[in-house]
Simulated assay, not measured.
Amino acid sequence: MTHVVVERSFPMPQSDEDLAAAEDRLAPCSELRGVVWKRSVVSLDRRHMICEYEAPDAETVREVQREAGAAFDHIWSGEIISG
């Protein structure tokens, strides 16, 4: 599995309900394609977000995001550096 990061920007601050609705749209597609959500970090102004996934590859995460209608700025694979 590959560690994949999704960067998002929103024109308006996102409420908890907005974020939960997006997750509800992503969950079925993610499950079908073997994409596992690990964690998300939202900015204090709630207009930027980074989501981390374990997935077969970055392209699979892109496909899930597109199928669910979830907007994203960048999606990239990386490795975790632990200190």
Results as ranks from 00 to 15, higher is better:
Ser9Glu: 15
Gln14Asp: 05
Pro28Lys: 03
Arg66Val: 12
Leu32Ala: 15
His74Asp: 13
Glu31Leu: 12
Val35Gly: 02
His74Glu: 13
Glu79Met: 05
Met49Pro: 00
Ala55Tyr: 06
Phe10Cys: 03
Ala20Thr: 09
Glu63Pro: 00
Ser43Asp: 09
Leu44Tyr: 07
Leu26Asp: 01
Leu44Pro: 00
Val5Ala: 13
Glu59Thr: 14
Leu32Gly: 09
Gly83Cys: 02
Trp37Tyr: 14
Leu19Val: 12
Ser43Met: 11
Leu26Cys: 08
Ala27Arg: 14
Val36Gln: 15
Val35Ala: 06
Thr2Met: 14
Arg62Met: 11
Ser9Met: 09
Ile50Arg: 08
Ile75Val: 15
Pro13Tyr: 09
Trp76Gly: 13
Leu19Gln: 13
Cys29Gln: 14
Ser40Leu: 07
Arg62Pro: 01
Ile50Tyr: 12
Phe10Thr: 07
Phe72Val: 06
Ala68Tyr: 03
Ala21Trp: 01
Glu7Pro: 00
Arg25Ile: 05
Met49Val: 05
Pro28Met: 04
Pro28His: 04
Met12Ala: 14
Ser15Asn: 09
Met1Trp: 11
Val4Ala: 01
Ser40Lys: 10
Ala55Asp: 02
Val61Ser: 05
Val6Lys: 05
Phe10Val: 07
Pro11Val: 02
His3Gly: 00
His48Phe: 07
Arg33Gly: 01
Pro13Lys: 08
Glu54Asp: 15
Asp24Gln: 15
Glu31Arg: 15
Ser40Ile: 06
Pro28Cys: 05
Ser77Trp: 00
Arg33Ser: 11
